[in-house]
Each structure stands twice: as structure tokens, then as C-alpha cells.
Design a protein around this nucleic acid. Structure first.
Lengths: 225, 225
DNA sequence: GTCTATACAACGATAGAC
DNA sequence: GTCTATCGTTGTATAGAC
């Protein structure tokens, strides 16, 4: 693994564990048994490191949501696809939780990153809009345009700030992957009043699936920290 | 006005305007045309100032939610009371928005404040639980215990992180009071599927009331910054 | 590429005169 | 109560040898 990658990796780990603001460039270097000077050979400054992490985040996001394949054949998908999206979100939320935990702070400190963030998120919400419209076309979701939009934005806010919310609830401040999975039933709860009765059964199954996931990761907690 | 109060006042203003972490004790002193030494005569350190602000916040919260009057005569109230609560929340969110905008950060930096925060919030959510149960008893709200609890926690998260969410949406990062009012229709939207049909009309009136409020403050924007 | 050593700036906080 | 002056610490970042 290249030194640059090692630094990025260590930075993510320390940021997640101790909070981005509590981790200095010296900490990162020390954690790698490396001199601060060496770190600055590979990165201009701390912001530069965070930006590199953001790029990784964007990469994974595009990959998981299939935003790269410009094959034009975007599968609308049913509730199974919704589930895949939720898994992607939860995975990213865990992997890059320091971003979610201090979003306003990180964005307000660097205008470039704020712009980058919005450009990363935008296509995802385009995709989600099309996905919800698809669910409605299939008769799974029963809602007018206005309600669909409200649901989308509500979901957006709840998802983005879920790690931050967990952070305020836990005294020590350390959240677990199982806790992150806890957002799924909440999102489903918001959609339930708008689900077609026939689809409720499948939704229940998906909810069960996520509950199992949550307990699985509760067992192997710390392994994939 | 006593110097101590002036400092608190200035601190709140600067924190709200520029973000708590971007405001140093020197900035506060300079803003008041005062020496740093003088500021430190009145407060032991920066945390001390923030704690004082927290105490003010708690005071106002207790006042607005009537948590002081231990007369035992807690009026359960209908939707008009819900409205009063919403106004209280929005008002506090605006007045102390820097707290809401960087909650995880502020709490993680100071364990004492984290505990204080939880002790401030707790009775409010007790009150809100009783209020929602009251609405159900009056036939305004139709939901089982589980759904009521889910609604409460969802509302809690949406409200607390509304200013932070707005912060991520606005490029400059400066939010307005009118924008803060925007959370009200979202909260109402979450409850709508569980409202009794007879109550929907009154809900619509309340929504109109808040829309007017929002445009009013849009006009006098900056006056009560 | 990596190290040691160090410059530099910012901020928090204090001492002591008035 | 308020000032001026200043210290100490910490974190960012660079210079220059290896």
C-alpha cells in the first residue's frame, strides 16, 4: 500500500474514532510511526487529506448507487432495490461517520468542500426521486407529487444526521454499526402510511432482514471498525 | 446591563453569526471594545461562557414550556398548545442556533455540558409525551403507543438538526428566521397520516398561521438577528 | 521518501499596573 | 473593573540533511 493511501486510511480511522477536530496531523503521523515532515511531503495540509477522503467517499457513493454506469439502462427496481440503497447508505454512514457527525463544521470551514459535498449528493437525490416515482408507478407507493417530495426531503435529513443524532444520545459518544442500522426502521416508518396494503408484507420482511443485519454486526462489533 | 451580561450577549451574537469555533475570546472582547484581560476577569475561560449561555437556554426553555410552575395543573391542551410549543421551539432554535448547528461538536468537547444538555432536554420530552397522549385521548391523534413513540423520536431528531440541515443546504451558511420556521410544515407532515379527519382542518389553519409568521419574519429579517 | 529540527501563528489564559 | 503586556501551549507547516 502506498504511503499516501496509508495516511488516508489512518486519517479516516482516527477521525472516526476520536472526531476530526481532535485529530491533528501529528497524531496521524505518530499513529503510523511516521514523522510529521513525511506526512507533509504527501499532503499539502490537513484540508488536503480531508478532501482526499471526500473523493474516496464520492467514489464509493457513485459505485454503490450505480451512478457510474452511463449505460442508460437504469433499473427502476422495487423494494429490493430500496433495500440495496439503504444498505449502501448505512455502509457509507458507518465507514465515513466522522463526516456525518460534524457535517456543518466541516463544510463551513472549507467552501471548496461544501461545494464538493453538494455536487456529490445531488445525483443521489435525483436517483432517489426517480426510484420513488418508480415505486409509485408500480403501485407500491401511494402518494401525490407533493407528499413524495416531502418524504424524500424528510428521509434525506433523517439519514444525513442520524450519526450526529446518535452521537448526542450516547454519553461516551462512541456509536456502533448496529446503532447505525437503527435508522432503517425509522425511514420505513415514515413511508409506511403511504405504502399500498399489498406491499406492507414485503416491507415487513425487509425490516426483518435489517434487524438481522443489525444483530450480526452487533456480534462482530469492532471487527470492521 | 452588567459587563457579564454584555459578554454573554456578544458571545451569542458572534457564535450565531460566525460559528462557535471561529470565535475566540479575543474576538468577543474586541467586539465589545474591551480587553481580553477584562473578559477573563468575568469568566474563567471560554467553556465558562458557553456554559453560561447554556444556562440561559435552559431558563428560557423551562419558561416557554411552563416547566417551572410546579402548580401540578399542567394543561394537556389541544392543537393550539401544540402550536405554542412549536413556536417556542422555533424561537429557541433561532436565538441559540449556534448550539443546534454544532451540537455533536459542542457536546463532545465538554462532558459536563453533554450531561447538562441531556438534563435540559429530558423533561421537555416527558412533557411532549404527555401532550401527544393527551391529543390521542381527545381523539385528535389516532396512533398506538409504538407509533406515537416513533413519531416523537422522529420529530425530536428533525427538530434538533433542522438548523444544521439548513446550514448544509445554504452555500454561504447563513440561515434566516424564515428558514427556521420551515421546519413546522415538515413536522406537521409527519403527523398528518395519524390525524383524525376532523382535526385536519384545524391543522391546516395552524399551518397557515405559521406560513404567515414565516413571511412576517422574512420582511423584518435582520432586525431580530 | 523519510527523517530531525524548527519556524510561525493562533489561541487561551495570566500577571500586575491603574 | 479594566487595562497592557506577555507567557505557554499546541498545531500547522517548512527547511534541509540523509
Amino acid at each position: 500500500m502506498k504511503t499516501k493511501d496509508k495516511i488516508i486510511h489512518a486519517a479516516i480511522e482516527l477521525f472516526n474514532l476520536q472526531g476530526e477536530q481532535n485529530v491533528t496531523t501529528n497524531h496521524i503521523a505518530a499513529h503510523l510511526g511516521m514523522s510529521p515532515g513525511n506526512l507533509y511531503y504527501h499532503f499539502r495540509n490537513k484540508e488536503d487529506i480531508i478532501q482526499a477522503i471526500f473523493d474516496r467517499y464520492a467514489e464509493q457513493l457513485n459505485l454503490l448507487f450505480g451512478l457510474d454506469d452511463n449505460s442508460g439502462s437504469e433499473s427502476v427496481g422495487g423494494l429490493r432495490t430500496s433495500m440495496r440503497y439503504m444498505e449502501a447508505v448505512v455502509g457509507l454512514m458507518w465507514q465515513f461517520r466522522f463526516i456525518y457527525e460534524n457535517l456543518p463544521d466541516i463544510l463551513s470551514r472549507d467552501v471548496v468542500m461544501a461545494e464538493k459535498y453538494r455536487q456529490i449528493q445531488e445525483p443521489v437525490y435525483g436517483l432517489m426521486t426517480r426510484h420513488l416515482l418508480g415505486l409509485r408507478a408500480q403501485g407500491i407507493l401511494l402518494a401525490n407529487d407533493e407528499d413524495l417530495d416531502a418524504l424524500l426531503h424528510l428521509m434525506k435529513q433523517v439519514l444525513i444526521f442520524w450519526p450526529a443524532y446518535l452521537h448526542t444520545l450516547t454519553p461516551g459518544g462512541n456509536i456502533t454499526k448496529a446503532m447505525v442500522y437503527g435508522v432503517v426502521p425509522r425511514v420505513f416508518f415514515m413511508f409506511r402510511p403511504y405504502m399500498a396494503p399489498e406491499a406492507l408484507d414485503e416491507l415487513r420482511q425487509l425490516e426483518q432482514y435489517f434487524q438481522d443485519k443489525a444483530s450480526q454486526s452487533r456480534v462482530k462489533e469492532g471487527v470492521d471498525a
